[in-house]
């Protein structure tokens, strides 16, 4: 096999002794997450099968198309064990499509779309409109301190309401919540993995280590 353009070494993760963290690799920007996590010393594995899920201590659900991730997860028998793992307290971090997959309720879903659930929130899918309305901005995240986070929203969702168990971590200037935590679950509407922002992943690895 020739060297392809997509080939990426996760060696930084292979020799590491940090927590074993999976990245759901059904569709989306999972390699970007894997690269950030490996750079932070985690042992990273791409997860497409239930057997691979059983090998990790925490999971990142990447950005992508939530309707596609949902279909593939159900078709290939990953949805049920993942839902069970979330109920069992496995730390999971979802960005954009990943946040949608972690929400208990999804508005503007594709027909028949389901989520894994776990976060006691209502998210609206693609809440800002078409790609013309996608944007990046500086976002204050008190939990991460200074400086603010450079946040890219790409046809992103927003958290329309939170139940009593979920805590907002960040909101836009108009008050719409775009980052949330509930116990071992973390979700952001935006993509730290593509803006060189590593603090959310560090924060998540802390959650994995603390379990």
């Amino acid at each position: 096999m020739t060297t392809t353009l997509r080939e990426e070494s996760l060696d930084a993760g292979a020799g590491a002794t940090g927590p074993r963290v999976g990245v759901l690799a059904l569709q989306g920007d999972f390699r970007e997450h894997a690269r950030v996590l490996a750079g932070l010393g985690a042992r990273v594995a791409l997860v497409r099968r239930a057997a691979e899920l059983a090998e990790v201590d925490g999971l990142v659900i990447p950005g992508g198309e939530s309707s596609v991730i949902d279909k593939l997860a159900r078709t290939f028998g990953l949805a049920e064990p993942l839902i069970a793992a979330i109920r069992d307290g496995m730390p999971v971090y979802g960005t954009c499509a990943g946040l949608i997959m972690l929400a208990d309720t999804v508005l503007d879903a594709s027909p028949g779309q389901r989520s894994f659930g776990g976060l006691d929130i209502v998210v609206r899918r693609n809440a800002f409109g078409s790609q013309n309305q996608s944007f990046e901005t500086e976002l204050a995240v008190p939990e991460l301190g200074e400086p603010p986070v450079r946040a890219a929203f790409i046809r992103g969702p927003v958290v329309e309401s939170l139940g009593p168990r979920a805590t907002p971590l960040a909101a836009l200037a108009d008050g719409r919540v775009v980052a949330v935590r509930q116990g071992a679950l973390l979700g952001t509407s935006f993509h730290p993995e593509i803006t060189g922002e590593h603090r959310f992943h560090e924060y998540f690895l802390g959650m994995v280590g603390a379990r």
Binding site: Q27, D29, G64, E65, S134, F135, E136, E138, R155
Partner: peptide, 23 residues
């Protein structure tokens, strides 16, 4: 707080990043 920036290279290239592994 800065003004939200639409149409940046990162946002344009970013949507393609989210389509990866897809049809």
């Amino acid at each position: 707080m800065t003004v939200p920036e639409t149409g940046s290279s990162r946002v344009k290239r970013g949507l393609a990043e989210m389509l990866k592994g897809g049809v």
